[in-house]
Design a protein around this nucleic acid. Structure first.
Lengths: 346, 346
DNA sequence: GTGAAAGCGCTAACAT
DNA sequence: ATGTTAGCGCTTTCAC
């Protein structure tokens, strides 16, 4: 920790060449004599040289890090801020996002800096962080449809890519899922099982994805001869699934099939059903959404509409990389297709 | 994005002072005339100046970022690496760690870079990253007792703090929980409820914390007149809790109380119990460990031994900060006390 | 194909 | 209290 880290200069001296040549070898620039390359590489090994990223970044204006921002809309108090982090990661969704992002970033030896932007101050901090050149761009996952961060980022001209299409149009690239098709897949499954009375626990109304999943589900049920589908709104949490299903069951005790707009709520649905003595899937079939880790952990294991979150996250990282490198200047939308994963619940 | 970011020079010109003065104001160094301070601040606002961290870092040799490393022992293949990330975050524990770390770091405007070190290559990458000066130090959470990363870090003289005492002594600071006391609390609760036949699902043998929790539990049960306590080893996952409890129940169908070494396994225990027609807590009382989000989500809500993970994570960040700033040179251990949180399961 | 030299934007002596 | 100056370690023209 005390011995000074070796610099380009040290390596150059050791190899008997100039700093420029060492730099070329390190950065894999051609036009360097193979013999000298070997010489330099040997010197690098001997000295244990590792390039200083601050110095490099100062001249290249690239940092090799991206901000991975989990963003809310709220005006959360300072005390609640770390609770926000815990809550966010309680949803298995984010682990998958992180996995997908890291999978793309690592081979390019760039790393994600984790940031939470759930208060106005925190959002300013994100913008400041990027403007300072601490990261090359931002990968933004909003937990709330009114999130003002995307607009702030776009306004500041900072490279950013969003997970999910923002409700208000913003000049930023994003990746998203064909949610309507997801709802359709769920309906088709319930229809195929012969469920007559069907209900659904939707996500929050304000979230566009919720509405699209619901629309796909309803449209398909309608085409299948079931124009009326009772809906209870949930909040994508286990508790909200429990409440929603409790309400649904009170009004429609004869329900035979339920589509929940995510797996966490589907788990809540299963809990309520079991407590009320209904067997899943024999009495009531349940279809979840996301195909997250809870789908497999749930009893019974959930049939679920798979959202390829890891692939979507990797695509975000790829898009950001293209924007940062200037290979892409116009915002684009990349859409992924959902897939039904059949387990025991339906 | 195209307009060049303003530099100290620009602000200095705007304010009619020297770069050094602006630097002093920005860094809050005293010995600057209040009138000039105002002048400079005005110029900063007008120009929209934000300090370039690469440049600053180059001279201060501090980066304002720390690596938050989740480390395994394995030799995971490249393809499995992002699955590792998802698996890690599937455990509610890590969300709490992140929350605690961010809570401490943010007010100091430093940020965590997320790294996964589950293969030899990835571990080298972490060391390289730190040696390059990309981060001031590392906060390490090992998922495996044989994790070689702490030793590598210590050897390289890099500032690092560990979550949990490493099995093989390493010259690094760490934070930990008084696990023995946690086991004791669980035993006392079961004893107080009058449970006669008691069993326990332990964590992996190889993990020191598992053994200490078990020892505290057994010692206390013995003192309470129950010298023999059947044990089944689990792996801290829900599935392993299910298997362990299934085995335990086969041999000891008359069990009245169960202590599981974490909440995820306790949840599995509850599932098995319910499937076998045992009511919790009426027939069998269950005590979990961690008091994570699943404790509250479980049916019935789990009585659990609380581990103050957020506080512990914040303490890690504080220790690292002290090491980095040279305020602390010798490794220390900071021990936290567990607390029983009573809910419905026991 | 290789070297010399000019900065990138900032901080910290040192001088005033 | 403020300004001057010398780098921090690296990349990148520009000569050779």
């Amino acid at each position: 920790m005390n011995r000074q880290a070796p610099t380009l200069e040290d390596v150059a001296r050791e190899a008997g060449v100039s700093r420029a040549t060492v730099s070329r070898v390190v950065n894999g620039v051609r036009n360097v004599d193979p013999a000298i390359q070997d010489l330099v590489r040997l010197a690098i090994d001997r000295t244990g040289y590792a390039p200083n990223r601050a110095a490099r970044s100062l001249v290249t204006r690239r940092t090799g890090t991206v901000a991975l921002v989990v963003s809310g809309a709220g005006d959360t108090s300072e005390e609640e801020q770390n609770a926000f982090a815990a809550r966010v990661f309680a949803d298995p969704f984010f682990g998958r996002v992180v996995g997908g992002v890291v999978g793309f970033l690592r081979p390019r030896s760039t790393h994600p800096v984790l940031m939470f932007a759930e208060s106005p101050g925190a959002r300013q901090e994100v913008v400041r962080y990027l403007r300072q050149g601490n990261a090359d761009g931002a990968l933004v996952v909003s937990t709330h449809p009114d999130d003002p961060l995307p607009a702030l980022l776009a306004e500041a001209g900072l490279p950013a890519v969003l997970f999910a299409r923002p409700v208000r149009p913003v000049a930023l690239s994003h990746v998203d899922l064909a949610h309507w098709d997801g709802g359709r897949l769920a309906a088709e499954r319930l229809l195929a099982r012969g469920c007559r009375k069907v209900a659904t626990v939707s996500g929050p109304w304000a979230v566009a994805a919720s509405q699209e999943r619901l629309a796909g589900f309803r449209d398909t049920m309608a085409r299948g001869g079931h124009p009326y589908v009772p809906v209870a709104e949930g909040g994508f949490t286990l508790d909200s699934g429990v409440s929603a299903m409790t309400a649904l069951l009170a009004e429609h005790p004869d329900v035979e099939g339920v589509f929940a707009a995510n797996d966490l709520m589907a788990q809540g649905v299963c809990q309520v059903l079991r407590e009320r003595g209904r067997r899943v899937p024999d009495d009531v079939a349940v279809v979840g959404f996301d195909d997250s880790s809870v789908a497999a952990a749930c009893r019974p294991p959930l049939t679920s509409v798979r959202q390829p979150v890891e692939d979507m996250a990797a695509a975000m990282a790829r898009l950001l990389d293209e924007h940062v490198r200037g290979l892409r200047t116009e915002p684009v939308a990349v859409l992924f297709e959902p897939e039904l994963v059949v387990r025991e619940s339906a």
